[in-house]
Design a binder for these strands. Structure first.
Lengths: 220, 220, 220, 220
DNA sequence: CTCTAACCGAGACGGTACGTCAGGTCTTGAA
DNA sequence: TTCAAGACCTGACGTACCGTCTCGGTTAGAG
């Protein structure tokens, strides 16, 4: 279809070593100097890699960072999973939503727990810097934004959908509610405060969001 | 305190002509070529202005655009106000939130109306391009983000606070609710969908948000 | 004739204070930072004068410096003349050529004396910096070069012409010699060494030049 | 010793193409618009080269022009040499001093011939413009001046030294004369007239210089 | 002894060029 | 063929001065 213009490189010969070094350099630079001052040349230099090696495999700074961050998330998830395993038996101590949202039967409590964990994550500079960078670029670059959402955000949101559906089955949420929209009532406010600095991010705040969303603003 | 190094220029001698031209050029370029490809040189050239005239009065591309957009908003508000005046007698047909949120007594209807107007605005390229650009830069540049919020976003949100308080007085909203948080239940989801392309933006969607937020997710 | 384009300013209202300050600033800057780094803005700032005051009365940096240097030379000449007067009675101890070249009857001795004084002058940074600057600009700017020569150099050279003519009358120089050309035999070599760094500038050197020039290179 | 900060570029990878284009552009611009209006940007643009490519290999406009002019001189010398070769058998018709000064046994005639050729050269705009530019900058920039002399001027002067020494052997010049100084008697006057516009440059003038210098000003 | 036209300081303005940085492409030599 | 290295062309950066143009204020000579 497309005239395969750029003659795609042979990925079997790809240097795993370089890929890792590039990921690490990209994340480190974003954390240390910020996204705008992170440059492809800087990443290449820090990774001990030729610029061409980056241009060969990625299309832009954002591409590099998106993959690097995905990789980082996977690592973190893997680590968390192992830890989870070693603590098996204990219930509920969810550390990271990628493990799924706990289902103790008490929807409000489960949501508050998970949102508190998210609050923690949003404050961890190691995660915050790259994800904020990607989110920012995604705001102005629709294609990147959609990939960011599809690969990072939506999988997280899907866990809320699952938990809400489960709550619908137990009657804690009205059956006519669309869970994909419902989750936004407590997730989006947190997201906006984080993205736009529209307010402080605290446990009390997220707890409140859950209460308001579940019970509504109108008198009962 | 600070040694106010660069000796601030004399604003009384400032050229109004240049300021206007720079505002116009900045907005036009962001709309036409996008924020990242909008350069200070480009703005200066398009405005028929020396680069130094921009650097003399603003600290960055974002500063220029923020002021330009503020100016644009004021113009729009002024225009809308005049139009409103000329249509006096008709009630309620608010076109722009800066006029305040209508208060017909029916909170849900009023909110839906305003949110629909916001949906329209978010789709107007003349407004979308610059505000998206500023929002994006604000995500990664906290100082800018806070100014964006303080000068553009928060005044809008305050209107919701007012309307919600009015609703509390008429008993349509529970008195223990914090309006500043409550408004996020329907505003933030819309904001996030717009910022991050996490879902379509439609009247049905915003209507649904209002219903969910007012009535809550839990069965009554 | 000409449409009196720029409407020449009224020189009777001219500020002597500013003129002096500009001269001083120009000379000082050329000495301190060099001609290329001397700017009109810098002169204006250092002189505590508006830029327009410079542009009103001079056409270029070189114009300013040329006048400043002429002024400086006149001052120096006046100072030297006073000093000369106070030492009256003593013969021959010419300090500065502008007083005329001494005429003791011994042409070689007189020339050597004057050239040694020139050597001293060429090494005085206060004179060297500005005159070198003007000479340099004159090399590449014919109009300036010709003014530099006419106003500064040629009057000096004329003194040599006079002395050589006197020597022709006493038979120390052949009558068919053109003094204006002859003087170049000892003046130009010194000038070139100074302008182009083609060799060291010493008393021995200038003495030698006089000997060679008077006696010729060929065996007698 | 010095911390050789800027990490000198790898000259083996240097683009010969760019170098040539830069030389040509620099010379052409100096001839066409003059040295002061010749800018690095202009050279880069005319040469179809990035500015950085100039800054990578040269430190200043003068550096570029000096090398360009040296290259031009070498080319010219090479061309002249070839021409000379093809005219072998004919004696004495020296076109360019770099071929050496002719030695017909008649010193005065040989010097006059060569100086007349120099007069021609000083009037060839292709040579005059760049060499005047370099000379001018060298007046005010000692480091450049010394390089100009060492690389361009002194080699020419050395030819006079050689010819004068030969004349000393044949008894046409007194043995106690220092040829390096002697040559200045006829070369420097011409140089000064050229540099400073102190007088017309003609064959008659240079012929006269030779006569005066060889025979001296004093009666024989 | 005003009045008023200029010169004055200051410095904003539209520009040009500076020297630097990074983007993305292309070439070279070693592995 | 990939890779590290880095030269190359491009284009924007933020700065320095250019020469022109107001803007009050001051200042002197014509009334």
């Amino acid at each position: 279809m497309a005239p395969n213009n750029p003659a795609p490189p042979d990925s079997t010969r790809r240097s795993e070593r370089s890929r890792r070094a590039i990921y690490d350099a990209a994340i480190a630079l974003v954390v240390e100097v910020g996204y705008p001052k992170t440059t492809i040349e800087g990443i290449a230099a820090r990774a001990g890699v030729g610029k061409q090696t980056i241009y060969r495999w990625w299309g832009s700074k954002a591409d590099v960072l998106l993959e690097a961050f995905l990789d980082l998330s996977e690592q973190a998830a893997r680590t968390a999973a192992q830890e989870h395993e070693s603590h098996e038996g204990r219930e509920g101590r969810a550390g990271h939503e990628s493990q799924g949202i706990p289902d103790t039967g008490d929807l409000a409590a489960d949501l508050k727990l998970v949102l508190r964990a998210t609050v923690d994550e949003l404050r961890d500079p190691g995660f915050e810097a790259p994800s904020r960078a990607l989110a920012a670029d995604g705001v102005v670059n629709e294609e990147l934004g959609r990939r960011f959402v599809a690969q990072l955000l939506e999988p997280q949101l899907q866990l809320y959908v699952d938990r809400l559906r489960s709550a619908q089955e137990t009657g804690q949420v009205r059956p006519d509610i669309d869970p994909r929209i419902a989750l936004e009532l407590f997730v989006s406010p947190l997201a906006q405060r984080w993205l736009q600095y529209t307010g402080p991010i605290t446990y009390e705040y997220t707890d409140t969001l859950v209460d308001y969303a579940l019970n509504g603003l109108a008198p009962r």
